[in-house]
Simulated scan of single mutants.
Amino acid sequence: MKERTRSIARYVIPGAIIVLVVIVTIWWFSSPSRSIARSPQQDVRSTTVSRGTMQVTVSVSGHLEPRSSVDLTFESPGEVAEVAVDVGERVSAGEPLARLDTRQLAVQVHQAEAALEMIEAQLAQAKAGPRPQEVASAEANLRAAEAQVNRAAADLAQVTRGASEAQIAAAEAQVAAAELQYRVTLIAHDRVMQQTEDSTRREQARNDLYAAEKALAAAQAQLDELLAGADAESIQAMRANLAAAQAQRDAAQAQLDLLKAGATPKQIEELEGQVAQAQASLAMAELALERATLRAPFDGIVAAIYITPGEMPPTGLPAITLLDDSAFRLVAQADEMDVGQLIPGQSAQVTVEAFPDV
């Protein structure tokens, strides 16, 4: 056992001596006095340790986008009449950019206005009641219808009684006058045919003779009808004329009575409904006319134009693109290692490569 102890001491003691020598050597070379001795001109500074905030910078790259942009489209079909701007041009809110041909739309607006004015006038007249001149006109129509009834009744009575001696005498006088006129015209016709070859005069003579023959035939037919008396068919026609005249008189009387009574509440309600419908039609026509012109919804820059004058652009497709350049936003993607350093609302410093001085 003593021999084993002496063997361990023989190895441990020299090892401890070596470790001690290494420690002393490190202390000697790292000693401040030794360093000063080796570098007498070296500047030595000291400071007090304190707690502070460490600034961590996260750098990302991305691209700038305008705050908003809009594609303007025509909501109704039509031919492009004018494009009032160019790409890159700055425009103000409400400024016209392009328009369609509005001639037909303007006509539709005028028609809607006229229809509204007419129905409004009818409603006002219904509420105000009949005017004196309207009553007078209706009364005149009634008197005319009554006169027509009297004439039709007189004609029927005459046909039923037969012709009087005075009527027959008058008809015979008309036949005699027509015969005399025919003879004179025939003599003139023969003279022209014998004495001239002028085609115009010869044609005129033939036309005059033809007219004289027709007049004589009509006068003779009237005389024959009076002498023969009315047949059953003529009497039936006269009765039909009298019935028609009486119907017209009754309608005129009803119109006068209705005019004097004024419009009923139901009629006024119907007219008010027609006015509302006409107003809606006018509003739709005016809206279609207004939408035929594209206007800038905000101040901005024209980014693109997809239409040209004279074409028929499809409805629903972009016609002009407008950008709002009053403000921009930066779209960037941060590394997942830096996401923990970012919080909403943090301020950031942005530099643009194209404009380094901005």
Score class of each variant (00 low, 15 high):
L289V: 09
R6C: 02
L271Y: 02
A163W: 08
M118V: 00
E179G: 01
E89Q: 15
V80D: 06
A212M: 00
A247L: 13
E179H: 01
S281V: 10
D335A: 12
V85P: 01
A171R: 08
A177Y: 10
L259D: 06
S46V: 09
D257R: 08
A245N: 02
Q41V: 14
L322C: 06
D86A: 15
G162S: 10
S35N: 14
A126R: 14
A288N: 14
A98W: 01
R4F: 08
A211F: 03
E311T: 09
A166G: 02
T308D: 05
D101K: 05
M337T: 13
A136W: 05
L294R: 09
S164D: 05
S61Q: 14
A93R: 11
P14F: 09
L100S: 07
Y11I: 07
L289S: 09
S326Y: 02
Q279V: 01
A138E: 00
S61D: 12
P313N: 01
D155G: 09
A263G: 01
E269D: 08
T308Y: 09
H110M: 06
L142D: 03
F298A: 03
A9S: 04
G345V: 11
Q341W: 15
T321I: 12
A217W: 03
P14L: 07
Q274R: 13
S33N: 08
S69K: 12
L330K: 09
R6S: 06
Q204Y: 01
A188K: 07
L294C: 05
V22G: 04
Q174V: 04
A288L: 06
P297E: 06
L116D: 01
